[in-house]
């Protein structure tokens, strides 16, 4: 369980990035942190494994106060996949890249081999095992970054802007991977301003603006509240924009699959035609 209690964080240049953050995330939840650039999403993520310690307040990860713990020990529980996957790469081959963290966490040799094999298979990177990480495509690099983290099986997986530079197929693959990891019992925290991606995933959404949490709730509620999304400089998902313009048919802004909305429109139009 993750608990933020009255957390404030001020950068050395005086910029207050987090302002009285109170938050609880239960084990096994999927949570999306959304908001404009500079809202405090990445700063909040960096508090999960102690890369940043609160200026005031405290962060508890399964009851452990991050102020009294090292990044290495917290990282065993919390794996963060950063926006720029290449910041991680330095090994000559992909399998060595995955094994690096496992070595740091002192896993036995045979366990390391098994976990590397599993991670390569899970992320469909087996054929590139001996390849340099720098020679992968953008989507493969993202998958490798996730493989690196999932290999040591942290309870909490945090993803910072996982869809930046990804095409539609890669985004769909990312959704599948997130769902699978969640089914394995992992808590997933995603920082993103890709509303379509989040709308597809339908997690609990925490909207942030200027270092504060301005809304916390299920996707169906938050992503259909157009005014709060605009306040956070986010566009609503296309399906919500469409349904919000169909009030003459008696439709309300709705987060649903396009087929469902199409059927609903057809039903209402038929009803109108029959009535007239």
């Amino acid at each position: 369980m993750i608990i933020f209690e009255n957390v404030e964080y001020v950068y050395p240049n005086g910029f207050k990035a987090l302002n009285r953050i109170n938050l609880e995330v239960n084990s096994g939840e999927v949570v999306a942190l959304m908001g404009e650039n500079g809202a405090g999403k990445t700063t909040l993520l960096k508090h999960l494994n102690g890369l940043l310690k609160p200026t005031s307040g405290r962060v508890l990860i399964d009851g452990v106060d991050t102020r009294h713990s090292t990044v290495a020990s917290l990282s065993r529980k919390v794996g963060i996949v950063f926006q720029n996957a290449e910041d991680m790469f330095f090994s000559p081959t992909i399998q060595e890249e995955i094994a690096f963290a496992l070595n740091n966490f002192h896993f036995p040799g045979d366990v390391i081999r098994k976990r590397v094999d599993w991670a390569l298979k899970f992320m469909e990177l087996e054929e590139y095992r001996e390849k340099s990480p720098f020679l992968l495509s953008g989507g493969e690099k993202k998958r490798l970054a996730l493989a690196i983290i999932l290999a040591w099986s942290p309870d909490i997986v945090a993803l910072d802007e996982p869809t930046v530079g990804q095409d539609i197929l890669q985004k769909e693959k990312m959704i599948q991977i997130i769902r699978q990891a969640n089914q394995q019992g992992k808590t997933i925290i995603i920082s993103s301003h890709d509303v379509e991606f989040i709308a597809e995933l339908k997690p609990r959404i925490i909207l942030m603006s200027k270092g504060r949490i301005v809304r916390d709730g299920p996707s169906e509620e938050v992503l259909t509240d157009i005014s709060i999304l605009q306040e956070c400089r986010l566009l609503p998902p296309q399906i919500v924009s469409l349904t919000s313009k169909l009030d003459f048919l008696g439709l309300k802004p709705k987060l649903a699959r396009p087929e469902e909305v199409a059927n609903e429109i057809a039903r209402r139009v038929r009803h109108l035609v029959n009535y007239s």
């Binding site: 960096k46 290495a72 990282s75 720029n84 910041d87 991680m88 690096f100 740091n104």
Partner: peptide
């Protein structure tokens, strides 16, 4: 800034 991002990424992989 890049150096800081890299240090953060590697520390998150247990590098001490």
């Amino acid at each position: 800034e890049e150096l800081q991002s890299i240090v953060d990424a590697q520390r998150s992989r247990g590098l001490e």
